[in-house]
Design a protein around this nucleic acid. Structure first.
Lengths: 230, 230
DNA sequence: GTCGCACGGATTGTTGAACAATGCGGGTCC
DNA sequence: GGACCCGCATTGTTCAACAATCCGTGCGAC
């Protein structure tokens, strides 16, 4: 069953912590969105969401502005915001940007960079989850692998941009809803990338990564086509 | 004389047009900031800016959130927002990201792409402004050249990221306030890049662009060092 | 003198209510 | 069936208020 309205979703009010709601609020909403609490395309009524999260409309609107900048939410004037639902063109663009940024980061990386350990750790988590057919965890770990890969560049701004791409892409995965075929084949490929990096060197790893991304894009687009998606 | 408080700046209320203030408002503020109406580091008091732009604090805060996401403004909880003032580390990071994105876009580009015409047009504007020692226009045209260069990638997301980098970098230029040395030498280099693209091909152009960016970074960092800047 | 600390003013964070402006759906009329 | 119009729901924005936090100031202790 698909969720098509906020009211269909039950969840606790976001956790009020020590920081300001308006900052944390966007984070909380982001987490819920990429966790799939609201499926892509869901309309987010200001009044409904504000009531459910127990914040005022004004505060919520600030959070929405942030999410809209991240591409996680689409804001159309006088028509409200809805969870972004990446089109085929969006997917193509996301992968184009990923290829450029990830391969570039990898090509300029040192195999001795501390993040290599993070990549390895993420890879091992993915391989462990693979054993148990826990595709959600596999997906998360794959994501972490690529995040660590970008960290090789030591560039906060590239990490930020890549984070946005990853979040948007996750929405596309949610829309497809076939985690196994989207995540399973790519654990082995990630291992190949990592071993190429510490073995054959950054350029070979980047070439391998490029194949990875092209294949991943092909899968997503194929699924979209089968769904008759725009 | 440097501006250090909003109250020092005189300007008309932002132009109320047909679209919603909250969207246009961020744009208007962005324009004013990158035009140098508020010098980097200036504190932007909510009450003062709201009064001057004739909007409510709530609406202004939405705009601030957007600008903060763009990196144009720094928002510290309970301490308000100030115009970003890129540190040396920021400059290094911005150039690192620019090198990766711009060189990557160029390397994957076709010399037959329509944006090549835009690059040429921007270059000619820069060369014309150079004749008249109009450094501000030279800077704007140089910026447009690189924007057109990114457009070679046909990736809206890369264009957006690059736009943010360019805006942040402009703040660094504002802080330096020596437009001639920052813009003059690079017109000829842009021509070299363009001619390499249509002549020797994308890879040669990318190599040239890399030298361009390294040299530009060196100038900015040098100026920062001479200013005793963080 | 200066270090720590309490106090108060100023600013930010958030709320709730209100109203204008816009979009959407339904009904009517031709 | 299609064009038009009207009413309702939602968004965009403002305002006033209050809580929470920060910052400068002055005081006292050492």
């Amino acid at each position: 069953m698909r969720v098509h309205d906020v009211s269909d979703v039950l969840h606790a009010p976001y956790d009020r912590g020590m920081t300001e709601p308006s900052t944390t609020l966007a984070d909380a909403l982001r987490e819920q969105i990429i966790a799939g609490d609201f499926s892509p395309g869901t309309r987010l009524s200001e009044a409904a969401v504000a009531a459910r999260l127990d914040v005022s409309r004004n505060t919520l609107r600030e959070a929405f502005r942030v999410l809209a900048q991240h591409g996680l939410v689409e804001h159309i004037p006088h028509r409200g915001v809805s969870v972004a639902s990446p089109t085929t063109a969006d997917v193509v663009d996301i992968y184009r940007a990923r290829r450029l940024i990830e391969c570039g980061a990898l090509r300029g990386a040192s195999p001795l960079h501390p993040s290599v350990a993070d990549m390895r750790a993420a890879l091992e988590r993915a391989e462990a989850a693979l054993e148990e057919a826990d595709w959600a965890t596999v997906g998360t770990a794959n994501m972490a692998f690529h995040r660590a890969l970008i960290a090789l560049s030591d560039s906060p701004r590239l990490e930020r941009s890549h984070g946005h791409l990853a979040a948007e892409l996750r929405l596309a995965f949610l829309a497809i809803d076939d985690p196994e075929s989207l995540h399973r084949p790519f654990v082995a490929r990630n291992r190949t990338v990592l071993e190429a990096l510490v073995g054959a060197g950054p350029d070979a790893a980047a070439d391998e990564l490029e194949r990875y991304l092209t294949e991943s894009e092909r899968r997503v687009l194929g699924a979209y086509a089968r769904m008759g998606r725009d």
